[in-house]
Design a protein around this nucleic acid. Structure first.
Lengths: 243, 243
DNA sequence: GCCGCGCATTTAACTGCGACATAGGCGGGA
DNA sequence: TCCCGCCTATGTCGCAGTTAAATGCGCGGC
């Protein structure tokens, strides 16, 4: 299983981070952190809990989701190696969502108290964390735009592109294809579509030879056409600056 | 016009903040910040810009939105006094969305450099900012769940409840009603509905005597029934903690 | 080897919501 | 004052997407 290096814990797995000084490296090495392996299907973090632990994902994939009062499930995000989990429980009192492992996952676990200690020792880490939050917020904004304004085929193209991108980023793509960790139901719940319609739309994408994952490996066959379908941003947004 | 006190700038208008020490108060007073009033319809922050300024909303309301490649608009959030704008341009390189004033707005403007200076002087403010980001993320998650899993009448109930709540929080509600700053088009763009269908659904809410804003003042007439329609959270989320 | 379960697939009937059309109200500008 | 543009209101129709139900298929356990 491809995995992120654990010496990068707890925050070194993000590309934005500034290089560590010698003193910081020393601190890093004194940092108490354990490793945890969970099976597919395990609920890593439960909605409503106030778990005192934070996790960095070292390997495997999962989904972050909410369960609604009507029993329906909304997948908020897909979780990949390098992602950071559990912060909300410390800041907001309790978790507002759950995280479930879609494949076996390896997690780096550490105590929340350790994080505040890290911030005191390395104030620049607070900046990094803020960046992570901003990036997450940006992604959630894209999701909202996709759910609100786009039809089924565009939503799927967008989701598959993003998943492929992230698989590629952790080296899980070979010969243009990577093992697809999510079920059609996960995609349906993420995109606000029914399972049936998700399936039909995937078939359409396959017919049009845009992408394929019928063999369990996700492959983007026509990147341009997919990107045309799955892009949320305008190339040149209208600009009316503050006078 | 009801407004938040400007001495609370830039970050004092959030309830989570820890009390200020004497040194912090001194710093606060030396903080350079100007005040800006804009007319309804002004674009305060434009998508794609990298404005060096940050804003705290002192009075008025607005919408935060993205414009998509197909020309459609997705409202991400409604902006109220106390909200904080423009951080993304510093962290992500450029703004990923625009903010437009729905009513006249009063803003407290300061330079981004000042914010980093504030963080150095008062490290605990970094925690506050992280909390703000987490709260924002929580709200965006609720929005995603609403767009993905709920029908038109539930979406409208949810949005109206939230708007009423926030109007109330800044003292703009009297006798159970507050002036509604947004147009039906704004709600439609926020909820992923067409203008026409939004209008019809509002009529249904009015017929059922749940709420009303036909006279320009938003009033929730049957709070219980509205809350039943507009709640995204389960009372008791399923818990399967990590073994 | 058979059974059971999770997941993918497909067909058929029904419906919520969008597109289009039309009309009325209200306010601001010349 | 009259006009014109922006916003709200309501009806009809078609389609994208939902719900329901049944089949197939690979895989692990006994």
């Amino acid at each position: 299983m491809t995995r992120v290096n654990c010496t990068q814990c707890p925050l070194r797995s993000f590309p934005v981070f500034t290089p560590l000084t010698e003193a910081e490296v020393a601190f890093q090495q004194s940092f108490k952190a354990g490793e945890l392996t969970v099976k597919r299907g395990t609920t890593v973090l439960a909605e409503g809990s106030s778990s005192p632990q934070l996790y960095t994902v070292l390997a495997g994939q999962g989904v972050r989701y909410k369960t609604l009062e009507n029993g329906r499930r909304q997948v908020l995000n897909f979780v990949f190696p390098g992602d950071f989990l559990g912060l909300q429980a410390g800041l907001m009192g309790e978790m507002k969502h759950s995280v479930e492992a879609s494949t076996a996952m390896v997690l780096c676990v550490f105590d929340r108290a350790e994080l505040w200690q890290l911030f005191r020792a390395q104030p620049s880490r607070a900046y990094d964390l803020t960046w992570i939050a901003a990036a997450e917020e940006h992604f959630l904004g894209e999701t909202i735009a996709t759910l609100g304004q786009r039809d089924a085929i565009q939503r799927l193209a967008w989701a598959l592109l993003r998943i492929h991108e992230r698989l590629d980023a952790v080296g899980l793509v070979q010969d243009g294809a990577g093992s697809m960790p999510f079920r059609q139901q996960d995609l349906a719940d993420a995109l606000g579509l029914s399972l049936v319609h998700t399936n039909k739309t995937l078939s359409r994408l396959r017919e049009r030879e845009l992408c394929d994952w019928s063999d369990g490996r996700l492959r983007i066959m026509n990147l341009d056409a997919m990107a045309r379908l799955g892009t949320t941003e305008r190339e040149r947004p209208e600009r009316r600056p503050l006078m």
